[in-house]
């Protein structure tokens, strides 16, 4: 079953066009990696999906519903959840309050405060602390937990390994396995191509706002990838 289907998506910042006819699909239960250099349009693409970029054109269907013109408030209730780039935690809320914000939509499902603390035990210990008292990796965990609290069908992760020590990145990617096991599909935006291809079923590569390559993660050759990534 196809969970997300994007057809010929264009996106604009004022006069500047950031995406050109992006077509992409995600099957239920699948993990898709979206790779590309800085400025390729990966973050813009995710923002289009969740409704944070109003200036978009094309077709987006999520779980059968057209959402290309829907406001962000409504899209979130359909089960599309974003772990934003740079985490964007709420600094005036404690760790637990941040997580509770994610649970506002009250969508039923496997994830709850208790389950998030089970996935990331360190957050349970630090639930009364402010986000800025946490390490970078722990802050990433709060951002992922917050997104999980809405029990998403599709979890969008924007650069969740950025600026983290390799050991912490391993830990975060390990948690993605548990998240998949609960039935969520995942779109991973990554700059680390190897890491992304290792965790995903399929890979899309963006270059200057266009899809330059897509295919099974396993069969991709290095040369083919670097051509799509750098456009040489």
């Amino acid at each position: 079953m196809t969970l997300l289907e994007v057809q010929a998506l264009d996106a604009f910042y004022g006069d500047f066009q950031a995406l050109f006819g992006v077509t992409l699909r995600v099957e239920a239960g699948e993990t898709v990696a979206l790779i590309g250099a800085n400025g390729a349009g990966k973050t813009t693409f995710l923002k289009c999906l969740v409704g944070l970029i109003g200036s978009r054109r094309g077709e987006i269907r999520f779980a059968g519903e057209p959402i290309a013109a829907a406001p962000a408030e409504r899209i979130s209730r359909l089960g599309l959840s974003l772990v934003p780039e740079g985490r964007l935690l709420f600094p005036s809320l404690t760790v637990e309050e941040n997580l509770m914000m994610g649970g506002l939509s009250r969508r039923p499902g496997a994830w709850s405060l208790a389950r998030v603390y089970e996935l990331f035990p360190v957050l349970g210990e630090r639930r009364r602390q402010w986000p800025d008292q946490l390490s970078g990796g722990q802050q990433h965990m709060v951002a992922i937990g917050r997104a999980l609290m809405s029990n998403p069908k599709l979890l969008l992760c924007d650069e969740i390994s950025l600026g983290l020590a390799p050991l912490v990145v391993d830990q975060i990617y390990e948690s993605l396995g548990h998240i998949r096991a609960e039935g969520a599909s995942i779109v991973l935006v990554e700059q680390d191509v190897k890491r992304a291809a290792g965790a995903a079923d399929r890979v899309y590569c963006l270059l200057k706002g266009r899809v330059t390559l897509h295919g099974q993660a396993r069969g991709l050759g290095l040369e083919q990838l670097s051509r799509a990534y750098f456009g040489t």
């Binding site: 944070l52 974003l82 600094p91 005036s92 809320l93 914000m101």
Partner: peptide
Amino acid sequence: TRFGRIVRATADHRDVVRLMGVN
């Protein structure tokens, strides 16, 4: 309160709360 939490979160990031269904 829940309302207070939403108010503080909206003050922090007015775009991010939209991802949680808050207008």
